[in-house]
């Protein structure tokens, strides 16, 4: 939403449509590291998905499928919480 709306263009009654934040890309908040998924190690436990503050672990049909890098802020929670041993199915790596 690059152009600012004038007041007559606003949604009625100070409402706002759901999900509009998808257009706001917080991916550029990452400080040089991003999570990288290693599907060969992944056991699809979904712990990374439930632990992500930014709904940025993507899933399909109950399986982990990767990351939404447009919104992932690179906090590293998913990598820390991933339970696989000895190697983690998510590692934080330089972008």
């Amino acid at each position: 939403m690059s152009k600012l709306m004038n007041w007559k263009e606003l949604p009625p009654c100070d409402t706002l449509a759901a999900k509009t934040a998808e257009a706001f890309e917080t991916g550029d908040w990452r400080m040089g590291e991003k999570p990288v998924w290693h599907p060969e190690i992944c056991i699809h436990c979904m712990i990374c998905w439930i632990s992500c503050p930014d709904s940025s672990v993507t899933v399909k049909d109950g399986k982990m499928t990767g990351f939404d890098y447009k919104h992932c802020k690179g906090c590293g929670i998913c990598a820390k919480e991933c339970p696989t041993k000895p190697n983690k199915a998510i590692t934080m790596e330089k972008e």
Binding site: L10, D14, T15, L16, A18
Partner: peptide, 13 residues
């Protein structure tokens, strides 16, 4: 038709 009501406005809105 989920609606967000009472959103935060910064100086731009």
């Amino acid at each position: 038709k989920p609606t967000t009501v009472g959103a935060l406005d910064l100086t731009d809105y």
